[in-house]
């Protein structure tokens, strides 16, 4: 008996075929559909500057969503991200009052983000606490510190060179934020899909015990993921603060839920173990386009939340309903 007759093939379906049947493809069609519908619904939609403005609806949230995607794939969650924005923004505002310049402000924002991420990470990995509870706690704690510092006041007076991070354009209608969003998306896509670290993230999300028994340093990976999420919150804080030009303790309230929605909409399993960065990118566009399109139609923001909420449940419910219907 030759050995060739039982050689196991690498794959049964080609990667292309798998991709075609994927969640991401479906989502892409949804995005295209919304784009087309919008351009029929409003004459103002297909305008380069309007579209460029629309990207600000999602770029800052998406930056955090990429890091959050990795965290959720690994089976953890961070609900404190919006509060990290508030604390980082408050720290930058305080730094402005002390006369710190733009480079110092950026370092402050990133530093506070990292410290907050490390704090979450230590609580989860060192003390072994469930991340959902820890980050509900730090969500109150971080924003609470902003309230203690600011009360009902606001920090203003950011230097013009700092404003560029939120208001500057790199070329024509392409904003700095959009370029940053694209670069960060690329970095995270490579990190998750093309590196050993990314593979470890999937392994941990599928079976953390099994990953540990395979020699993966599970707690270290988790800690790094919390650091990254904190860091990205710091980056988003810089962009958002620069864009708004002021800091109030209520800045970015409720963003954590929008970011989680974006990640889940992008096909990342809330139970961990699966998901892609491409999906999150498309989900970011879908959410941005819906918000923007409804805005052009003068539909108030709160009503859009119905659509986002329905999307979140619908995208998961519909395939299951379809499967149930087919099974009879």
């Amino acid at each position: 008996m030759s050995t060739t007759d039982r050689v196991i093939p690498d794959r049964l379906r080609s990667p292309f075929e798998q991709r075609l049947k994927s969640w991401e493809t479906l989502l892409l069609f949804v995005a295209i559909g919304i784009f087309v519908a919008n351009s029929f619904a409003s004459p103002y939609f297909l305008n380069a500057w309007n579209l460029s403005d629309a990207t600000f609806n999602f770029t800052e949230k998406a930056m955090i969503a990429f890091a959050m995607a990795l965290l959720i794939i690994s089976g953890e969650i961070d609900l404190s991200v919006a509060s990290i924005i508030a604390l980082a923004s408050t720290a930058m505002g305080a730094a402005v009052q002390m006369g710190v310049g733009t480079p110092g402000l950026v370092l402050t924002g990133l530093g506070v983000g990292l410290i907050c991420g490390a704090f979450n990470g230590v609580l989860v990995t060192r003390l072994g606490l469930p991340s959902i509870v820890v980050t509900i706690g730090t969500m109150s704690l971080f924003r609470g510190i902003s309230y203690i510092v600011l009360g009902d006041q606001a920090f203003r007076g950011y230097p013009a060179s700092f404003s560029w991070f939120g208001q500057g354009y790199v070329w024509w209608v392409i904003s700095f934020e959009f370029v940053l969003f694209a670069v960060i998306a690329l970095i995270y896509a490579v990190l998750l899909h093309k590196t050993n670290f990314g593979r470890a993230v999937y392994a941990i999300g599928n079976n953390a015990t099994g990953a540990m028994f395979s020699g993966i340093r599970v707690q270290r990976v988790r800690f790094i993921l919390f650091l990254l999420t904190g860091l990205m919150s710091g980056v988003a804080a810089i962009c958002l603060t620069a864009r708004l030009g002021s800091t109030r303790p209520s800045i970015a309230t409720g963003w954590e839920l929008e970011i989680v929605t974006m990640v889940v909409l992008g096909g990342v399993s809330i139970l961990g173990g699966s998901g892609t960065i491409v999906g999150v990118v498309i989900a970011a566009f879908v959410m941005g386009l819906v918000t923007f399109g409804l805005g052009l139609l003068n539909v108030p923001g709160i009503v859009m939340s119905i659509v986002i909420g329905a999307l979140l449940i619908g995208v998961i419910a519909l395939p299951r309903l379809w499967a149930m219907w087919r099974a009879g």
Partner: peptide, 13 residues
């Protein structure tokens, strides 16, 4: 009263 949020956050942890 602005301390309340931070205190309840700390209490949770």
């Amino acid at each position: 009263p602005f301390w309340q949020l931070a205190i309840s956050g700390g209490a949770i942890i």
